[in-house]
Amino acid sequence: MGVNATRGANITAGVIIALIFVGPIGGLALAVWSLSQPTSLDAKTSAVYMQPTLESFADEQSVTVAVSWAEGVAVLAPAWDGVVTEVAVRPGDTIVNGSNIVRIDGIWRIAASTPSPLFRPVSSDSSSDEIAAVTALLRSLGYRSSSKWSWETVAGIRAFAKDRGVPGHATVEAFEPSWVVWLPAGSLTLSEVGLAPGQSAPSLGEQIAQGTGHISALDVTSTDGIPLPDPAEATWELRSGDASAAYLGPRMSGVDDVADFSARFADTKPEELTGVVRRVEAIEAWSVPSSALFVDADGTTCVFVRGASEGDPAPRTVTVAGAAVGQARITAGLWPEDAVLVNPGDIVGDAQCD
């Protein structure tokens, strides 16, 4: 009896003995193991093929989010005179550009998101920056105005003054800074309001409201060691519980970009969150074992599919979009009928992809 035959006989005998002493379940496992062992010392590696599966991938990955908080923004009064007759806001309200804040001597004062606070009447004699701020504010509120001072700008100011209840609005020639309250952000949720009907109008620089504490930055790190995605290549979102934001990179510091996180976690102000980063729109891709990918000497990535005959695998250049542990995702280059070579490194040698 030859060496190989003797070895095969020994393995078979070992399995039979194992079945007697180990029992049916353990014996089955040993039998499967014995069948997977080579029965010849010089057996060649066989080509292994499999059908790829078309799946939908959101490429969701777990992340840890370090949260940096800033104190709430103080809302300050411009130069006012008179008596507060009505208050339009209370704690918990969110104010935006154009929101009514307070009525003083019958004139409504609104929130205005301008590059900086207006500090004097803006007219045809004002600086170009001041005029640009007022004309942009008028347009944002739906009033007609050109980008430079013009009769149209004056008409827009008069329409604005009329809607606020300004006496003599039909003859005004300038935009008064007392008509607005400077809003330093696109939106602001209030935690405190220091206004009440009947009180004297707050003086210049006096705090009239306080914004809730808000997130100044989110620092995102992967918890599973997988590199974070590049937001330039697709649209991604960051989620933690019910809070969500467009994922813009490992550090997100725009107040408006993280506004939903600020609003949802304002009460507890956590310093760290867990969450996920995932695609907004899932992609469809063919899933194949990572071992099926082959990179040739020119750096081209391909897979090999079953050719006309069993021993003739054919290269197919593919587009790879991400991967998971042990799996690669191919978005172009494969067809449903393809059978992919799982072990090209053992079969094709130094082949080229094209």
Results as ranks from 00 to 15, higher is better:
G2Y: 10
R7A: 04
N10Y: 09
F21C: 01
P24V: 00
L28D: 02
A29C: 02
V32F: 06
S34K: 04
P38S: 14
T45F: 02
V48R: 14
M50H: 05
E55F: 01
S56C: 00
F57E: 11
E60Q: 13
E71Y: 07
A74L: 02
A74W: 00
P78Y: 02
D81C: 00
V89N: 08
I95R: 12
V102R: 13
R103K: 11
I104K: 04
P115R: 07
F119T: 07
R120W: 12
P121H: 10
S126Q: 04
S126T: 08
I131Q: 13
I131K: 12
I131E: 06
A136R: 09
L138I: 01
R139Y: 06
R139D: 10
S145E: 00
S146G: 15
S147M: 10
K148S: 14
W151C: 06
G156Y: 08
P167D: 10
P167H: 11
A170K: 03
V172L: 06
S178C: 08
P184D: 01
G186S: 13
T189V: 12
T189K: 06
E192D: 15
G198I: 02
P202S: 07
G205Q: 07
E206W: 00
Q207M: 11
A209M: 01
T212Y: 00
G213R: 14
I215G: 04
S216T: 09
D219I: 09
D219Q: 13
V220A: 03
T223C: 00
T223N: 07
D224A: 11
I226K: 11
L228I: 08
A232R: 10
E233I: 03
W236S: 09
E237S: 07
E237H: 09
G241S: 05
Y247G: 10
P250W: 12
G254V: 07
G254C: 09
D257M: 08
V258I: 15
D260G: 03
F261I: 05
A263R: 14
F265K: 01
K269S: 12
K269A: 13
E272M: 11
L273Y: 07
V277C: 09
R278V: 00
S287C: 03
G299L: 00
T301W: 06
V305P: 13
R306Y: 02
R306Q: 15
D312Y: 12
A314R: 15
P315N: 08
V318A: 11
T319R: 14
A321Q: 07
G322D: 05
V325S: 11
A332D: 15
G333T: 12
L334V: 02
A339I: 04
V340K: 11
N343A: 04
P344C: 08
P344R: 05
V348C: 14
G349T: 06
Q352S: 15
C353E: 08
